[in-house]
């Protein structure tokens, strides 16, 4: 059984292609391998939950796919770009255009209100003020927070903050959303709302989502679960809903 068989995530054009990807860290002279021999193709519109025990390399894999870390071996093609060919500034521009980030702790800027937080990535796009306003309002409307756009993060609940963070992630209309434990800091009700929202982004807007989670309930919202074990892909599970 080859890798393609073991990790078949359905048909469709791949948006993410990893070939023999490896990642190691160095502690003084000691090499610590985190990922080894990762071969994976993720098609457009997939919703993947990366799972595995702590230290299995799932966040590292997410970081590589999102272009905020570089592999020590192998090739990585995401959204039509070989990330190894891009320098740091090109990679930054690429992230702005193609990737939306959703973090566990929301990571909103506390001195900016919801509107301004969502507007942040658009400052890099060259969009005019009017266009930015339209896109921010559209994104906030999608996460049902238009009535809170002038509120600061401290004036929002955890669930609302995460929805603002999701609006920020989608405002540039990226191909790929990456989420690292997006419900890790939320109670069950808010977690469910956020997961439902992410499912909508996948089904209605066709966003490809790669999510790292420990939570089986959260993983159940994905279409596929990929399990990592000690830095290698272990198995993939198609979720039946």
């Amino acid at each position: 059984m080859n890798a393609a068989d073991r990790f078949d995530l359905g048909g469709g054009e791949p948006v993410i292609t990893l070939r023999d990807v490896a990642k190691s860290y160095w502690r003084e002279d000691l090499e610590i391998p985190v990922l080894q021999g990762i071969d994976l193709e993720i098609p457009v519109g997939a919703y993947i939950a990366l799972m595995g025990p702590s230290g299995s390399g799932k966040t590292t894999l997410l970081n590589l796919v999102a272009g905020i870390d570089r592999p020590t071996g192998g090739s990585l093609e995401v959204c039509g770009y070989d990330l190894n060919d891009l320098d740091d500034d090109q990679l930054a521009s690429w992230r702005n255009a193609h990737v939306g980030f959703i973090f566990q702790n929301y990571n909103l800027v506390p001195v900016l209100n919801a509107f301004e937080n969502v507007e942040l990535p658009l400052l890099l796009t060259g969009a005019g003020r009017g266009e930015r306003r339209d896109r921010v309002e559209q994104a906030l409307s999608l996460v049902n927070l238009t009535d809170r756009m002038r509120n600061y993060p401290r004036q929002l609940s955890g669930g609302q903050e995460q929805r603002v963070a999701i609006a920020r992630a989608i405002v540039t209309d990226p191909d790929l959303l990456v989420a690292d434990e997006p419900t890790g800091a939320l109670d069950a009700k808010n977690a469910e709302e956020v997961l439902a929202l992410m499912a909508r982004l996948n089904t209605e807007l066709g966003k490809t989502i790669v999510m790292v989670t420990h939570d089986p309930k959260a993983a159940h919202h994905a279409r596929h679960q990929i399990h990592l074990e000690k830095g290698v892909l272990d198995r993939t599970v198609e979720v039946n809903r």
Binding site: I68, A92, W94, N96, F103, N107, P121, L124
Partner: peptide, 16 residues
């Protein structure tokens, strides 16, 4: 530190 990392993840270059 975290905020700076978030800015950069969103596409702000180190120079910016």
């Amino acid at each position: 530190t975290t905020e700076i990392a978030v800015f950069r993840a969103m596409g702000f270059s180190a120079g910016r």
